[in-house]
Design a binder for these strands. Structure first.
Length: 573
DNA sequence: GCACCTTTGAAGTCA
DNA sequence: TGACTTCAAAGGTGC
């Protein structure tokens, strides 16, 4: 059952994925990470320059101009991000994010959540300024936030989350911040105002596509016209709370208070409380389609007569129509998907590759090259996302999406050993990917990523005596690396899903003594008043391998850990 | 226009 | 309980 157990709190799986690891190989990883971090630091610097340039070039009038209706929450949100970015920038050497707080998460390096934002307790003026800011989710939208004269941030940032334009217009921490903002790059006029936007690839002006308004969850064509704002669903409408309570969902008197920054980030990014059958077409109560809802018109079983139904407007079978109405709730992203979303742009930027298949290969390798801590972050994020997903859509099951896609031709029948050795004919050879992949291999592996990095998370994370097979497998050309022995999961990085309900609960209980969320109940109330808007971090500071990124992730994790699950859980019940 | 490719992980199904 | 399947993202590729 996706619902949370009453008192269980954080027992929605994934607890068992958080295993304490040994430290073998960590030094090497750190070294390699430092190398890339230095490079990323340069990127950060240049990005900051760009940021300032953008700030100067973009007039404040732009903000007020293109925005028919100012959205104070979002602007303050952006300003907070700016503040936090500034604070991070100034205090990057201050050792904010050091020292794990949770004994059970020695690798998470969560800052002391009892301290306001920073673990060292000393706040720079900039940070203090930031701390004075209101958390947009917690405060009623105020013009003070909108017109905060203290803000060094020009207004043009108001609706463009990435402070610094990412090389590929994708926020490096897109999955960690918000899934809907990445297309709003600074310097480009908002799509909903400007009739044309520049195609990032071709540079040719083009008319914004509805999908750009909701990048990850395509909107149904019919609903596009109802979008008042690219972030419309994210932004409170007409004084509404940003996230209203789904029936049986959040019943906190102050809905936004039921979520902290990370929660809201996840909510805003993927899931909507309205993603319940009450809004069959993913339309917000205000008529705003939610990005988490993929319109069945767009994403439906093509084999069926849905298309004909939609075109002819004649529902053949009521049952089918009923299915059509069912919104498509996407699966929550797993750790790797989150990582992919974050890193894809960077890999694309580093490589000349365009094919996602190749990119994904690289990402897969990089994923294995990630340190345990970093992977743990994504696992934790994914876990939180699943939690949130299950809370928002209690009745949803992954099974609901079965058949929503075209059946993948997996005719390479469960891999007889021979077939695993030979490439299926219908599959494209991976060989062409190799050169480029090699070219832009993970920076952490200048001399063979798979050799100086954990063989696999499973191997490295699991046991010091990692199977050499995995190791050698990774050392092999990618063209030969299909699925190593099927889908073996990390023995010591167990996946929570398998035993979703009870077993994850049991695993949670087994580690409950050290699980952060257990102790969060007592702290959540206090933390609600001061969550860290991690998503306010500028993109430039969050280069995945940069110390900023690390710090940001840690911070974000702190937020995730502070998620007031108890409140939500009770509400769900 | 759409399935495929490619990755890992979660979750579902089935024996 | 293990094996297997499907889906999640992404975008170029090929039919």
């Amino acid at each position: 059952m996706p619902q949370l157990n009453g008192g269980g709190g954080d027992d929605l799986g994934a607890n068992d994925e958080l295993i304490s690891f040994k430290d073998e190989g960590e030094q090497e990883e750190k070294i390699s990470e430092n190398v890339s971090s230095e490079r990323d630091l340069d990127e950060v610097k240049s990005s900051l320059v760009n940021e300032s340039e953008n700030n100067s070039s973009s007039s404040d009038s732009e903000q007020t101009d293109w925005r028919p209706r100012p959205r104070p929450e979002l602007e303050s949100y952006e300003k907070q991000r700016e503040y936090f970015a500034e604070a991070l920038r100034r205090q990057q050497d201050g050792g904010f994010f050091k020292g794990p707080t949770y004994a059970g998460y020695p690798f998470l390096m969560i800052p002391d959540i009892t301290n306001p934002y920073l673990s060292n307790g000393s706040l720079s003026p900039s940070t203090r300024t930031y701390l004075q800011m209101k958390w947009p989710l917690l405060d009623v939208p105020g013009t003070a936030a909108l017109k905060d004269s203290r803000s060094p941030t020009p207004g043009h940032l108001s609706n463009k989350v990435p402070v610094v334009q990412h090389p590929h217009h994708v926020h490096p921490l897109t999955p960690l911040i918000t899934y809907s903002n990445e297309h709003f790059s600074p310097g480009t006029p908002p799509s909903h105002l400007s009739p044309e936007i520049l195609d990032p690839k071709t540079g040719i002006p083009r008319t914004p596509h509805p999908s750009e308004l909701s990048p990850y969850y395509p909107l149904s064509p019919g609903a596009v016209g109802q979008i008042p704002h690219p972030l419309g669903w994210l932004v409170p409408q007409h004084g509404q709370h940003m996230y209203s309570i789904p029936p049986g969902g959040f019943r906190h008197p102050y809905p936004a208070l039921a979520m902290n920054a990370s929660m809201s980030s996840l909510v805003s990014s993927r899931f909507s409380p309205h993603m319940v059958p009450h809004h069959p077409h993913g339309l917000h109560q205000t008529g705003i389609p939610h990005p988490a809802i993929v319109s069945p018109v767009i994403k439906q079983e093509p084999s069926g007569d849905n298309a004909s139904n939609s075109t002819h407007g004649k529902p053949s079978v009521p049952v089918k129509k009923e299915e059509e109405r069912k919104p498509h709730i996407k699966k929550p992203l797993n750790a790797f998907m989150l990582y992919m979303k974050e890193m894809r742009a960077k890999v694309v930027a580093e490589c000349t590759l365009k094919e996602s298949a190749a990119i994904n290969q690289i990402l897969g390798r990089r994923w294995h090259s990630l340190s345990r801590e970093e992977q743990a972050k994504y696992y934790e994020l994914a876990r939180k996302e699943r939690q949130l997903h299950s809370q928002l859509y209690p009745g949803w099951s992954a099974r609901d999406n079965y058949g929503k896609r075209k059946k993948r031709k997996r005719d390479n029948k469960p891999d007889s050993p021979q077939e695993s050795n030979f490439m299926p004919q219908h599959k494209k050879q991976c060989v062409p990917y190799l050169p480029s992949e090699k070219m832009c291999d993970s920076p952490t592996s200048s001399h063979g990523s798979m050799l100086d990095s954990p063989a696999t998370p499973s191997a490295a994370l699991a046991s010091p005596a990692a199977p050499a097979a995995t190791h050698s497998e990774q050392a092999q050309p990618l063209s030969l690396t299909t699925k190593p022995e099927g889908r073996t999961h990390h023995p010591h990085f167990p996946l929570p899903g398998k035993a979703s309900g009870s077993s994850s609960t049991s695993s949670s209980s087994s580690s409950s003594t050290s699980h952060p969320n257990i102790s969060l109940h007592s702290q959540s109330a206090a933390l609600l008043s001061r969550p860290i808007p991690f998503s306010t971090l500028p993109a430039s500071l969050l280069s995945p391998s940069s110390p900023f990124h690390q710090a940001a992730l840690h911070s974000h994790h702190a937020l995730l850990q502070t998620q007031p699950l108890s409140l939500v859980t009770k509400s769900v019940e």
